[in-house]
Design a protein around this nucleic acid. Structure first.
Lengths: 209, 209
DNA sequence: TATTCTTTGTGATATAATTAACTATGTAAT
DNA sequence: ATTACATAGTTAATTATATCACAAAGAATA
């Protein structure tokens, strides 16, 4: 796998392609062209081919791509050919929603540890997982070997949680708290700020007027 | 306000700056430089200045920016100087989390209509809003003048909900269903696919090995 | 007032990403 | 076999975005 600086946009599109291929496969489609995929997900055919070209040659000229094959390849590229263990910190409304989000399980993510501080929640079982107290975070994460952490705590606690997740051995963090986290460069970090998405919309709406 | 094709990345950063400025203001800081903002949010000072330059001149050379002023300006740019009415469709775990998400209210978004099909939920009050049946979507959205719709229904129903929201007069849609929606070009659409974010992380993790 | 210091705003440059055009390769029909 | 056709892979051109470097402008100091 050659890896000369892949644009993040490409990764995001691969993820979208894979979902489309999965559906196509379920509908019994065997072969698909870059144009078909492009139409299906709203990008240009050249874009589809370019994105795939970063990783190798998966199609046959004149024909197209084998749906199952390509799907498998993309999952492999995205690192989804094995199960990832995810630790979720914070079981507010958002944490609860994330813990039961089917999309994660379908794609091979297992939220196998959940942490909160609320004594009412600690010890209860949520989606087959026993909720632990945050005090035990390092211990539990280390013991279970969680590779990814999801932060769904209030902004004020996010940095502390991030520090502790990293100390416990987590290699990547998905942060839902609306705050800029400071992490070492080797830690993969992504921020999801739900309000930001709405603000991009309102910016565009405000322009139209 | 001159508006010659602003990069979306700029809008997202403006949103981040505004949150940082809000915090700086709360801490009593009166004046701030592009370097301070840059350090605080993890970008370069030149980037901060360039982003702002799309919209005008807000600082004084040799001094920096007035925190309150700049914050106000950015909110204005993002279209956040008035309240936006948002209709939420789908009250599963995710919908519930979104309906109670404080980040929305803080930024001037009011989720003033909620829809679901579940008879157990319809008629109940969630975060001060009466849950309506989806059958009444067009009627209620039109009557209350919601400008933005949030789709938090299963993938299979998302397109239908989108169509109905648009018919009811919604101008922008935030879609949480993992599916590519088809909407007319004048409708602003953003997709938030939570699994995609995790997949960008695992792609990078997979690379490291 | 002149001088130095700071920091913005911006034009020029470099980098990155997308789009378009073209070439190579396989399939199917004549 | 030959020809026409379809479509992947790839190179080149275009467009978009980010970085750099410096002139302009205000503030502080001598």
């Amino acid at each position: 796998m050659k890896t000369l600086k892949i644009p993040e946009a490409t990764i995001i599109r691969l993820s979208v392609y894979s979902r489309y291929l999965y559906m196509a496969d379920k509908r019994g489609i065997v072969t698909i062209s870059s144009g078909d995929i492009a139409d299906g997900v709203g990008v240009s055919p050249a874009q589809v081919r370019k994105d795939l070209a970063y990783f190798g040659e998966f199609g046959t000229r004149g024909v197209g791509y084998n749906v199952k094959d390509l799907h498998r390849h993309i999952l492999k590229i995205l690192g989804l050919s094995n199960i990832w263990h995810v630790a979720l910190v914070g079981l507010g409304n958002l944490g609860l929603a994330l813990s039961s989000y089917k999309g994660f399980r379908e794609r091979g993510f297992c939220i196998c540890s959940i942490f909160d501080t609320d004594p009412e929640k600690v010890g209860t079982i949520v989606n087959d997982v026993v909720v632990e107290h945050i005090d035990r975070l390092e211990e539990v994460v280390d013991e279970r070997g969680a590779q990814i952490g999801i932060i769904a705590v209030p902004a004020g606690f996010a940095q502390e949680v991030a520090d502790r997740l990293i100390k416990a051995g987590v290699k990547a963090i998905l942060n839902f708290a609306p705050v800029v986290l400071n992490v070492p460069p080797e830690i993969e970090l992504r921020n999801v700020d739900l309000a930001v998405h709405l603000e991009v919309l309102t910016f565009n709406l405000a322009l139209q007027k």
